[in-house]
Design a protein around this nucleic acid. Sequence first.
DNA 1: TAATATTTTCAGTACCTTCTGAAAGGATAG
DNA 2: CTATCCTTTCAGAAGGTACTGAAAATATTA
Lengths: 185, 185
Amino acid sequence: MENSVLQQSQALFVRRWGEMAASWGISRTMAEIHALLFVSLQPLCTDDLMEQLQVSRGNVSTNLRQLVTWGLIQRVHQRGDRKEYFVAETDVWEMFEIITRERRRREIEPIIETIDKCSEMILPTLTSADGPERDEIVLYQQRLDEMREFLNLVNSLFNLLIKVGKPRVAVLMKTLTNFGLATRE
Amino acid sequence: MENSVLQQSQALFVRRWGEMAASWGISRTMAEIHALLFVSLQPLCTDDLMEQLQVSRGNVSTNLRQLVTWGLIQRVHQRGDRKEYFVAETDVWEMFEIITRERRRREIEPIIETIDKCSEMILPTLTSADGPERDEIVLYQQRLDEMREFLNLVNSLFNLLIKVGKPRVAVLMKTLTNFGLATRE
DNA sequence: TAATATTTTCAGTACCTTCTGAAAGGATAG
DNA sequence: CTATCCTTTCAGAAGGTACTGAAAATATTA
């Protein structure tokens, strides 16, 4: 089969998507598999993915399983074919929710917990220490608080975005833009 | 020098910060150096960092240079000491702006450009193709558009957040929360 | 100027993640 | 049941990133 313009365009998208994911700490191949399913009209099977991405069966299998666990793709069956096929979640907004929920749980929550623990640790010393040592503790406490506050903000923003959801994003953006203009000094 | 509670707490924070950064595709050591400077009252020199993080001089030197390039830390000089010392940008909001600006430039812009290019590529074929092939192209175009729209939204949100800035974030959050409540079905 | 202190660079090494390929496991058809 | 088709697993290999340590470069002092 010759390479159609459509295939060339899709290959370009898939490659770039993989590169972007790699720089965000996500396996390149996993992202490429997801991208390929995302742009495909028909479900794809393991052999399709192996051929198009030139990777091994084991690699495809492992990454498919992870993508299913994330909830970013689903198994589907074709009548009269034993093979398993896969389709991607194609609602970009849903994808956003899935990814941010999981990454917040894995990477934002732990750092928030750690910050709280760090604050607790130094609490008793704040009352006992004095002089330059006390200054150091107070400053450290301040910086922890600021970081904690910022992470709270990020969390709230994501929650809000997800709650607002796709249908009302346009309205939200308008509100935000107005806000930006209205409070400009 | 014995390990004070303060030092233990800071070490905990530094370690966790490094782990978090690593899962976001940022070098663990670079993040640890930044975290250590962030929680320190005094500027630190290469030897301080080498000792506390147990890494080599070359490693510290390279990562310090990168952090300076990012604008996340600055060189400072101590009277009567030849050594170079470093301090971190401690305004969390400023840090956020620096990091998001750079990462958007490196990782969001390229994928947006690629999506536009992918769209352009298939534009001519849209008029010529027909039947199932045409369906496939139309669907692909739709998915590209949705993704493009989503990335635009993300960009706008970051721009707005940065423009609003630290002092007015509280007001922004209140506005957003009201919005969330007001449009809830 | 030379002597000394400090930083930077980078070739080689270590480490960690991802990938391969083949064997084992599992499902379906005959 | 056996044969066939397909998927999963995982030990070892490959590849890529980060690190070390020492030599070179640079800066400071005398």
